[in-house]
């Protein structure tokens, strides 16, 4: 997946360049710019980082260094459905690791990866703040609380049906 060809559109590029030009003079603009870029493209491929470096007049190594420092920036595309399992303490104490393992097992990929058909990607995340519902997972932002390994797999499978 990492080598998937870049499919950015001219419209996306215009949008990004406009955002950068509007914000590049404000101090510390690189983070908001990267966040915006990821919002536009869904991830931060080389081509996008190069646009940012050129437009902001900073070395690509600096853009890349920041992009790889923060875990929310992703250099690889995400699946059509993104599954996120909370591994915060409250969830962990209630067995979140088993839920993650069950989903990884079901989809045959590890956290941080995307299925070969591009349908699902799994991430683990830190505390979503829904500790009252621990253990928690989200699919495309939809929160599922009080999961068990079995129910988690069923939830994932329900998205297959949708497809």
């Amino acid at each position: 997946m990492a080598n998937m060809a870049f499919r950015g559109t001219p419209k996306q590029e215009r949008e990004l360049r406009r955002f950068i030009r509007k914000h590049k003079e404000q101090p510390g603009a690189l983070m908001p710019v990267l966040q915006e870029a990821q919002g536009i493209y869904g991830y931060l491929p080389k081509e996008v980082q190069q646009i940012i470096a050129d437009e902001m007049g900073i070395p690509l190594s600096q853009v890349f260094g920041v992009a790889t420092f923060y875990s929310q920036f992703t250099l690889t595309p995400k699946g059509e459905h993104t599954i996120s399992v909370c591994l915060g303490t409250a969830c962990y104490v209630k067995g979140a690791d088993k839920i993650l393992a069950a989903i990884e097992d079901r989809l045959g990929i590890k956290a941080g990866e995307c299925t070969p058909d591009g349908l699902f990607s799994i991430d683990s995340c830190r505390c979503l703040g829904a500790c009252g519902l621990a253990p928690v997972m989200t699919v495309d932002g939809e929160v599922y609380g009080k999961c068990t390994p079995e129910s988690a797999v069923k939830i994932v499978e329900s998205y297959y049906e949708e497809v």
């Binding site: 070395p59 190594s61 600096q62 260094g65 420092f69």
Partner: peptide, 8 residues
């Protein structure tokens, strides 16, 4: 800026 820090 040919080299920099990568990851963390």
């Amino acid at each position: 800026g040919a080299i920099g820090q990568i990851r963390r």
